[in-house]
């Protein structure tokens, strides 16, 4: 198992670059409140990275996010966007450059789905045809058939569908910075998983800088390049890569927050394509298969489901790449090559 831990620490997640968003000594005390909602927060979000904000309810995640696009003005400290202090720039102009997905969804009830998604492009003066094709593209992206949904109104959508439209609205003008407050919270696990994969795929193509709030630790581990674990009162308890947070919780609070089962969770960080696999021999015929784009977690799942002590890892064309044994998994798993 120690090998897994080791391989996790130096694989998977990208090295941080220069900060796109930097919070420096930021605090927020709401009027008439004794204690700050966010206290002395220093946080640097690297360009092109997905940073997950996670923590118990009421710990200041939304407050932190809203200070980044100045929906809330910080009491102290300063906020830099791409190196520029945004404390005094025009807030409306700033917000058109930053995609924002609000926790309560907040679609405009009097506008059609298409018009909801098109708000920012319209304000930016895009021409009609470009807006229409962008709207359709985004509806496809969030898994909603444009012909069916384009002309509907928010009240004619389910909660999860509304939430997806909210995500599309935030992405509409293709901002390089996105702030997303529990964007997949009301979506069923299967659709959520698909959206997460879609999201990671898009992110691989056009690396946006994303701050993403969630309550779901699996989601955090899956999507995050880094995870910021908040404790009550807006204290940043730990800010590190998912594998570090899981392997070395900074304090008791973090340890308790991530809870038990971290060893299993860490399996989902280990991609099969990075594993040293066993040679395929003929006797492996009939063993269950798993795609090499999956993780060790998926492999374990397949083994358990098929009651098989072994899985065959196949590539995108279905060609076997090697085999993974239960025994190997629990004794000495090795990775190969440099991390992605």
């Amino acid at each position: 198992m120690t090998d897994i831990v080791q391989s996790l620490t130096d694989s998977t997640h990208r090295a941080p670059q220069r900060p796109m968003i930097a919070l420096e000594g930021v605090s927020k005390t709401y009027p008439k409140q004794r204690r700050p909602a966010v206290a002395e927060l220093n946080l640097a979000v690297p360009e092109g990275a997905i940073v997950i904000l996670i923590g118990p309810s009421g710990c200041g995640k939304t407050t932190t996010l809203k200070m980044m696009n100045r929906l809330i003005e910080p009491t102290t400290g300063r906020i830099l966007l791409d190196g520029e202090d945004v404390t005094d720039v025009n807030a409306d102009q700033l917000r058109r450059r930053i995609g924002y997905v609000i926790q309560q969804v907040g679609l405009f009830p009097h506008l059609s789905i298409a018009d909801n998604i098109a708000v920012v492009p319209t304000m930016l003066g895009w021409d009609k045809r470009r807006i229409t094709s962008r709207v359709d593209e985004l509806l496809h992206l969030v898994g909603m058939e444009p012909a069916e949904f384009r002309d509907r109104y928010p009240r004619q959508l389910s909660g999860g569908q509304q939430q997806r439209v909210g995500v599309a609205r935030g992405l509409a003008a293709d901002p390089s910075v996105m702030l997303m407050d529990e964007p997949f919270g009301a979506i069923d696990p299967i659709t959520r998983e698909r959206l997460q994969d879609e999201f990671l795929e898009v992110q691989r193509q056009v690396a946006k800088t994303i701050c993403f709030v969630t309550h779901d630790l699996s989601e955090a581990v899956k999507l995050g390049d880094r995870i910021a674990v908040f404790a009550a009162g807006g204290r940043l308890a730990q800010y590190d890569t998912p594998s570090e947070v899981l392997a070395h919780p900074a304090d008791d609070f973090v340890a308790e927050f991530i809870g038990s089962g971290t060893a299993v969770r860490r399996l989902s960080l280990l991609e099969l394509r990075h594993l040293e696999l066993e040679e395929i021999v003929t006797s492996h015929g009939g063993a269950p298969t798993v795609p090499h784009s999956g993780t060790v977690y998926d492999a374990v799942d397949v083994m358990l489901a098929a009651h098989s002590p072994l899985v065959v890892v196949v590539d995108d064309d279905g060609q076997p790449r090697g085999a993974l044994r239960w025994d190997t998994l629990v004794s000495d798993l090795r990775t190969k090559g440099p991390p992605r």
Binding site: D92, R95, V105, F108, P109, V119, V120
Partner: peptide, 15 residues
């Protein structure tokens, strides 16, 4: 008017 809707309007940069 739902405050969430107004906040969304602020969030997308409406003056």
């Amino acid at each position: 008017v739902d405050p969430a809707v107004l906040e969304a309007a602020r969030g997308v940069g409406m003056g």
